[in-house]
Amino acid sequence: MFKDSLERLGLYAQAVINSIGLMMMMLISSAMLLLTPPIKVRNMFKQMEFVGIESLFVVILTGSFTGMVLALQSFNALKRFGAESMVGPTVALSMARELGPVLAGLMVTGRAGSAMATELGTMRVTEQIDALSTMGINPVKYLVVPRIVAGILMFPILTIITDFVGVIGGWFVGVKLLGINSGVYIGRTIDFVTIEDVATGLYKSLVFGLIMTLVACYNGFYTTGGAKGVGRAATTSVVTASVMILVSDYLLSTVLG
């Protein structure tokens, strides 16, 4: 009984280490292939459109409502100390340092990460990835590199947009609904929020973009087991990338301050 459990644990650990190894190999070969001509600019733009432009609606919706609810809740708390004027900085700092990158990361992972894993997984089980190889085309260069580049470039842009609409949403609730003076709201926000705060969020978003695309591409690229395997790849991608985003957010917050 104990031996069986230990054996299962060992096999699981072996599988996890194997996955991490393969993922790192994929990352290293992607970095090398990125610099090897011909560079697939068209594919990159296509993926940037998919990850970035097509995620705009969902991040605007999430960011604005998060900013609004943040203003509402912080107003209720700060009112007790007579510090309603601090609602603006509270919303802006929360959005810039934490919620902007994390929310954008999680929302895009749910939308684009699952789609990436499904698309690559389907290509794997229908032998389309093998077909690329038989034509002398490196499938990592053709399929993975553009997606990783798109993730790294588009996540910071989506984060800035999330931050911005969150602050606007907070301003709307604070000023228009709760009656805080607009000049005070904006003035205090400018006083307390620095470029470093925004930059911290953007650094995080770069890492989140890499995590999401790498995890989705890895799971899709190495899919086995037909339609069921494709479904499993999509689910695993979203769960793994989301957890990794939250864990790395804590680690990055510790390092970046």
Partner: peptide, 10 residues
């Protein structure tokens, strides 16, 4: 190479 399913890029 011709694949069993065709493996055409969908």
């Amino acid at each position: 190479m011709l694949f069993q399913s065709g493996a055409l890029f969908d």
